[in-house]
Amino acid sequence: MKKGVLLVNLGSPDSTNPKDVKKYLDEFLMDPRVIDVPFWFRSFLVRGIILNTRPKKSGEAYQKIWWDEGSPLIVLSERLQKKIQEKTTVPVALAMRYGSMTLKKGLQELVDQGVDEILTIPLYPQFAMATTETIDVKVEELKNEFFPQLQITSLPAFYNKPEYIEVLSKSISEKIENLDYEHLLFSYHGVPERHIRKSDITKSHCKIDGSCCITDSPAHEFCYRHQCLKTTDLVAKKLNLQPGTYSTSFQSRLGFDPWLKPPTDRTVERMGLEGIKKIAIVTPAFVSDCLETLEEIAMEGQEIFHEAGGKEFTVIPCLNDRDDWAEVVTGWIDRWRIVDVKTAIA
C-alpha cells in the first residue's frame, strides 16, 4: 500500500470580508461538536443571533492580524507542510476542518497521487471534542461516502510526548531566558465543562473537582483538561520553573454555560491589579498562530493587562514552522511509515 499524510488545522475565512467571515463562522459554529446543543437551538443561536452581528466584528479582528499572503494560520500551516514534505518521501497534504481548504480536497489530493493508506495528523496537541474529534468524525464520513478504498488512521494526541515537550519548552526558553518576567501563564483554548464530561469514556471519573485530573484513569486519554494541565506540568519540569511563577488558564469563552476555569482574561486582569508588572504568556493548545493568539491574546490580553496596571506583556509565538517542530512531525511520519501509528509516537 502507498502511504500518505494529511495535516489538518482549524481553518480560516477566505478573506476579512464579512461575507466570507459569515460563511466560515456558519460552518464552524454549526458543527455539533463545537456547539453541542440540539440542531434547532444551535440554528436559532448561530443563524438567528450570532451571524447577524459577529461577522462584522470578527472581520475587523481578522483585519488586525491578516498578512499580505493571507490568513496567518493558513500561511504558517502551508510553510510547515512544505518543510515536512522536504524531509520525507511520504506524500504530505494539508487541509482545514472548516473553510475552502476542505478535508475532501486534502484526501483527494493524496488519492490522486496513488495513496491508499493515510495518516491524518490533527494539529492539536490535546484531544477535544471541538478539535480532534470533529476532524476524525468528518474524515470517517468522507471515507465512507467518497473514499471507501482508503485505510485511514489518526495520530493520537501528543500533549505529553517527550519530543513535543522538548521543542515546546525550547521555544519558550528562547523567549524568556533573557526576559525579566514575574509570571509565565499557560493559556489554553477554553471549552464548556460539559465537553469534558461527554468525553469521559468511564462515564464517572471526570468531576472537574481539582483531583480527578491528577488521579490516574483511562478517561485521561480523551480528557482535554487533564491533557492541558499535564502539558503545563511537563514543560514546567523541563524548564525548572518554580511553584508560584507559572499557572494555567483558559481563553475564549462563549455563552453562559460553565466553561473551564480560570478564564485567561480575568487572570491577566487580576495579575495586573495585584501588582504584577511583567508577565509572559504561551498558548500550547495551538501549534500555529491564529486569530486567538494574535488578536485575542497578543492585543486584547495586553490591553487588559495594561489597564489593570501591568507594564510588560510578552507573547511567546506558537511552534508554527520551526525547523525543530517540522523535524518532530517528520519523525512521527517516518516511524509510522515503517511500523504503526502507536509506535510512531510511543
Rank of each mutant, 00 (worst) to 15 (best):
T264D: 05
S154Q: 12
K19P: 00
L103G: 01
G190N: 06
V21C: 10
V139S: 00
F158S: 09
C223M: 03
P262C: 00
L239A: 07
W332A: 02
V282I: 15
V139T: 14
R225D: 01
V287C: 03
K175D: 01
T131W: 04
T232K: 05
P13K: 15
F39Y: 10
S199N: 09
W325P: 07
I281S: 11
D20C: 11
H183T: 10
Q63Y: 01
L150E: 06
A344F: 09
D321F: 06
D14C: 11
G190D: 02
F286K: 04
E303D: 12
V315T: 13
R270F: 01
L241M: 12
D200R: 09
P13E: 15
N144S: 11
H195N: 07
T102H: 02
K82V: 12
Q63R: 10
T202Y: 00
S249Y: 06
R322H: 06
D321M: 01
T153R: 07
F286R: 00
Y124Q: 01
R322G: 08
G244P: 10
E269G: 11
H205V: 15
E86N: 13
I84G: 06
A93R: 08
D323N: 12
L294A: 08
S288G: 02
E69C: 00
P91C: 05
D116H: 09
W67Y: 03
P263Q: 14
T16S: 11
V90M: 08
Y224V: 08
R33G: 04
G114D: 13
E296H: 08
N178W: 09
R270G: 05
S288I: 11
D289P: 00
G48D: 05
D36S: 14
N320Q: 01
W336E: 11
A95I: 15
S100D: 14
D340W: 05
N144D: 10
S199W: 04
K277F: 04
K230M: 14
L185E: 05
K170N: 13
I333F: 05
R253Q: 09
A346C: 02
P72M: 10
V328A: 10
P72S: 08
K311M: 12
K83Q: 03
M96I: 15
D112E: 14
Y188H: 03
T132L: 08
L184Q: 02
D289V: 11
G59D: 11
T134F: 01
T330C: 13
W332S: 02
E296G: 07
S252E: 04
G272M: 12
P192N: 05
R79N: 12
I49C: 02
S169A: 12
D14L: 15
S58D: 10
A157W: 09
L234H: 01
I135H: 04
K22H: 07
K2T: 15
A326T: 12
P156K: 12
